[in-house]
Amino acid sequence: MNEASRKISLDYVIKQSFKYWSSTLFYQLIFTLIYFSTLLILGKFLLDYYEIYPKIQEIAPLMSSNPDEFSSAIQEITFSDNFKYFSMMVIVATAIIYPLNIGFFKIYTLIDAHEKVNINDLFAGFSGSNFFKFFGYYLLWGGIYYYLKQLLILPGFLWIMFTIFVTPLLYFTPMNLTEALKISFKVVGGNFFIIAACSVLAIIFSYAGIFLCFFGLFFTFPFWNAIIYTLFKSYFRIKFV
């Protein structure tokens, strides 16, 4: 594997990413339905298990009758040990469904090869050892991100940006996690501004669907994967699986 030496323009990344995204709208919808329904089910279970939801129901009337007391009660809940345990378990819940993202990498390679795509390709991240590889990676990634984002917005964003190539490196190459992290940090460091711009674009567009009657989120949320794949293809010369 060699890092591509040519400069990549933002215009090129945007055009290529939108090409992948627009040609896989059906799979974007399926992905988002599975992703959010799974998180909602697991999240509701965790809220009940850690007795957070019942407490929120108890103080809900205060929202209109006594906003200050409501705010104080919410703050007490969020600083409780149970809420900390809940937050940690949300990372585990997200790690369970995270391998679903890998399916888009396979789908995009099939599109590049002009081969037929089917619904099973979306679940490539759950086949064989892939699930355990990406489940374990997200536990580490999500745990670090959880602490960084509590400091300021910037540390969390930088963690997202500098690890942007780790997932495709783990999928497309035989690298271990340490090697993938090292390479990702190196390539991002050498192409900081273009990757920073692409990361901001990906975040904005992925959540832009919320403003389209909210339903638009079902199509825009997975856009991040198209950005990652386009950047990865641009900076790495490897044989894709």
Results as ranks from 00 to 15, higher is better:
Y207K: 11
G142Y: 03
V13H: 04
E179S: 12
F105E: 01
I52D: 00
I238Q: 12
N118A: 13
N191P: 01
G189Q: 10
L154A: 11
S23E: 09
I204S: 08
Y235M: 11
F86M: 04
E115W: 07
G156Y: 13
Q150G: 08
I34Q: 01
Y98R: 07
A208K: 14
Y53M: 05
I102V: 15
L212E: 07
F79C: 06
I56F: 15
T230D: 05
S129K: 15
F83T: 03
G103L: 00
E179R: 06
S5K: 12
K233Q: 13
F157I: 06
Y20Q: 02
N176G: 04
L33C: 10
E115H: 07
F135L: 13
E51R: 07
F18Q: 03
F165K: 00
L39A: 09
G156L: 11
L100Q: 05
Y20M: 01
K149F: 12
Y146W: 01
F31G: 01
N66R: 06
D11L: 09
R6T: 14
A226K: 03
T167I: 08
K15F: 06
A208H: 12
Q28E: 08
E76A: 12
L46I: 07
P99Y: 08
Y235K: 14
M89R: 06
M88I: 12
G143A: 09
L46F: 01
D112M: 14
N66M: 02
D68I: 04
F135G: 06
I183S: 09
K116F: 05
P99E: 09
L169H: 03
P174W: 00
N101E: 13
S65M: 04
F211V: 13
I30G: 04
I56K: 14
L33I: 13
V241I: 15
I204C: 10
G43N: 02
C213P: 12
M63E: 09
F221R: 03
Y85N: 02
Q57F: 01
L25N: 00
G43V: 02
L170T: 05
N225R: 13
I107W: 03
A208D: 15
I194G: 02
E58D: 09
Y138T: 05
G103D: 08
T24Y: 07
K116W: 05
E51L: 07
T173E: 12
D48G: 07
L25T: 02
A197S: 15
M175P: 03
I111L: 15
G43E: 03
T109G: 00
K55P: 02
N225Q: 13
S184V: 01
T38P: 03
M89D: 10
F162A: 04
S72A: 09
F165E: 00
S199T: 11
A4Y: 11
L40T: 11
K19F: 01
Y108H: 08
F236Y: 15
G128A: 14
F193I: 10
V117S: 00
K116D: 05
N101H: 11
F214C: 13
T94M: 03
M175R: 12
F18A: 00
I107K: 05
A60K: 13
F223A: 04
F86V: 06
F185W: 08
F232Q: 04
K149T: 14
